[in-house]
Design a binder for these strands. Structure first.
Length: 229
DNA sequence: TATGCGATATTCT
DNA sequence: GAATATCGCATAG
């Protein structure tokens, strides 16, 4: 992978013309989300997270790189859901889904991708919200390297791409997004558009439940055009 | 634009 | 041995 962090000199002297439009717009300093305000219900949390911001800071001290994006697509895997990883009970792999609201659950699929969930119910109940797509905001150059040169609208369009763009893997499993110093959630950077609902993608059980949520019309939502509108 | 298929590793049957 | 909360590439329309 050619995904090396660029030397400080390049970041200090960035040419405005080379910076993508989304990165050149200032991102306001926003309030970190607290556990108390998260809806303690998987489906409600999945809808509520649309428009909120996910932030990952990485790299050694002094060379921290901040990667962030607007959450534009989620799926709810509710308690008792046969398509959820928690369905057969707690195991070493899925333990984070059973932790308190706001924990990260990261798993590895298809031999090459990671996916990020947010534990979505009270301690002891296995449920989560899968974060499926981001509209990149900060650190777009670094995300592009992590994604092997993908175009802006494909950087985090899909759960596997999202984790790759943010540099997330099993090391991030079980982190508490409410308190972790590197990975956290903050408020929406702008008004959220209409939130639409559909069936979920890529599952073979309970396929008809309307538990996928997305910002209607966003180019950063996964799937075909029909799944975005 | 839509559909099909292979890659790849961990988990579960 | 089968399935998998996916992706990127190939091909056809």
């Amino acid at each position: 992978m050619p995904g090396r962090v660029q030397p400080r000199a390049q970041r200090a002297a960035k040419a405005p013309t080379a910076v993508p439009a989304a990165e050149s717009s200032p991102v306001p300093i926003l309030r970190r989300l607290t556990r108390a305000e998260l809806p303690a219900n998987t489906s409600e949390l999945a809808r509520w997270l649309i428009g909120k911001t996910l932030v990952h800071e990485r790299g050694p001290a002094g060379r921290r790189v901040r990667l962030s994006g607007r959450i534009v697509e989620t799926e709810a895997y509710v308690p008792g859901d046969a398509s959820g990883h928690a369905f057969r009970g707690e195991t070493a792999r899925n333990g984070s889904l059973f932790r308190e609201l706001g924990r990260a659950y990261v798993y590895f699929v298809y031999g090459c991708w990671h996916c990020l969930n947010v534990a979505a119910e009270r301690e002891g109940v296995g449920a989560g919200v899968l974060l499926r797509a981001l509209e990149p905001l900060e650190g777009i150059a670094a995300m592009t390297r992590l994604r092997g040169g993908a175009s802006l609208h494909d950087l985090a369009r899909g759960p596997g791409r999202l984790a790759a763009a943010l540099g997330l893997d099993l090391r991030h499993d079980a982190l508490d997004l409410m308190t972790d110093p590197n990975l956290w959630l903050v408020d929406a950077v702008r008004t959220t558009g209409e939130v639409a609902t559909s069936v979920r993608i890529g599952i073979s059980k309970e396929v008809d439940r309307p538990l996928r949520f997305y910002e209607r019309g966003s180019r950063f939502v996964s799937g075909s055009a029909r799944m975005r509108g």
